[in-house]
Each structure stands twice: as C-alpha cells, then as structure tokens.
Simulated assay, not measured.
Amino acid sequence: MRQQIKHWLLISFGWLCVLLAVLGALLPLLPTTPFLILALACFAESSPRFHQMLLNHRWFGPPLHQWQQSHTIRRTVKFKAMLLIVISFAISILMLWGRPALQLMLVALCLLLLGCVFRLKESEPD
C-alpha cells in the first residue's frame, strides 16, 4: 500500500513539474529546466514510460538526456539562465523601491541562485 501511494505521488508530482515547466517556457520569470529535471527524477522512480517520454521529447529531450548522462549543461544555457536570474531579480528589486530589507533579501537570494548555477558543470564544446 505504501509503495503504491509513493508511486502515485511521484507520478503526480512529476506531472505537476512538467506543467510548471511548460508554463516556464511561456512565462519569462518561471524556470523551465529545473522543473523538467525534477519531473525526470520523479518519473525515473515511478514510471519508465513517462521517463522515456520526456527523454524522447523533441524540444526537452536533448538537454534532459545530456543532464541524465553527464550532469552537465551547455555554456550558452548556463549564461542564459544567469542572465534571466539577474534581469528578473533586478525588476523585482526595482519594484520594491523604498523597502531596503526586502531588496537586500532579494539580492541575497539572487546571489545564492547565481552561485548555484555558476557551479553547474559545463559540457565540452562541440
């Protein structure tokens, strides 16, 4: 019974992550790749069919396959992610003009995210 509950929870969370990733592809401030990686991990534990479906997807498949094989990302993807983080946090900080405590919190969170992305290994250039 516990195993079946875990199975359905992982599938449900995986599909929620796919939905958020699709929204992230349409909305500039919502990330796509982390949600797809989470979905891939959920499906790897719960549904080989859905796992393979993500890996075979025309748009999402190649970067996910690269991540699964080598835990690396392309340099251009890394640069774009860091640029989007800076732009989105800059807009948020400007929107909170006059609230220095919240602005400092956003600066700290931005630096933390940039550090995490910076530490990701890059794939070898083609």
Rank of each mutant, 00 (worst) to 15 (best):
S88D: 05
S88R: 01
S88E: 02
F89Y: 12
F89T: 00
F89R: 02
F89V: 00
F89L: 00
A90P: 02
A90L: 09
A90R: 00
A90E: 01
I91Y: 04
I91H: 01
I91R: 04
I91D: 02
S92L: 13
S92R: 07
S92E: 07
S92K: 05
S92P: 03
I93F: 02
I93M: 08
I93H: 00
I93K: 03
I93T: 00
I93L: 05
I93S: 00
I93W: 01
L94T: 09
L94W: 12
L94M: 13
L94I: 10
L94F: 14
M95D: 05
M95P: 03
M95G: 10
M95L: 14
M95A: 13
M95F: 12
M95H: 09
M95V: 10
L96G: 05
L96H: 06
L96C: 08
W97V: 09
W97Q: 10
G98Q: 06
G98W: 03
G98M: 02
R99I: 07
R99P: 00
R99T: 10
R99Q: 14
P100S: 12
P100C: 04
A101E: 13
A101P: 01
A101D: 11
A101R: 15
A101M: 12
A101W: 07
A101I: 15
L102S: 14
L102Q: 14
L102V: 03
L102K: 14
L102C: 05
Q103N: 09
Q103C: 07
Q103S: 06
Q103M: 10
L104S: 14
L104D: 08
L104Y: 13
L104P: 01
L104I: 10
M105R: 14
M105F: 14
L106G: 03
L106I: 01
L106H: 05
L106F: 08
L106R: 03
L106N: 03
V107A: 13
V107I: 15
V107M: 12
V107Y: 06
A108L: 14
A108T: 15
A108R: 08
A108K: 06
A108I: 12
A108C: 13
A108H: 07
L109A: 15
L109D: 03
L109P: 05
L109N: 11
L109F: 12
L109E: 07
L109K: 11
C110F: 04
C110V: 01
C110T: 05
C110L: 07
L111E: 03
L111Q: 07
L111T: 08
L112S: 10
L112T: 13
L112I: 13
L113G: 03
L113S: 08
L113C: 10
L113Y: 03
L114V: 09
L114C: 04
L114Y: 01
L114E: 00
G115S: 12
G115M: 06
G115D: 05
G115P: 00
G115A: 06
G115V: 07
C116G: 10
C116L: 15
C116F: 13
V117G: 02
V117W: 00
V117E: 02
V117S: 01
V117Y: 02
V117I: 13
V117T: 04
F118A: 09
F118M: 11
F118E: 07
F118K: 08
F118S: 09
R119T: 08
R119D: 08
R119S: 08
R119G: 01
L120Q: 13
L120Y: 12
L120I: 15
L120C: 11
L120R: 12
K121D: 06
K121Q: 08
K121A: 08
K121W: 05
K121Y: 05
K121R: 15
K121G: 09
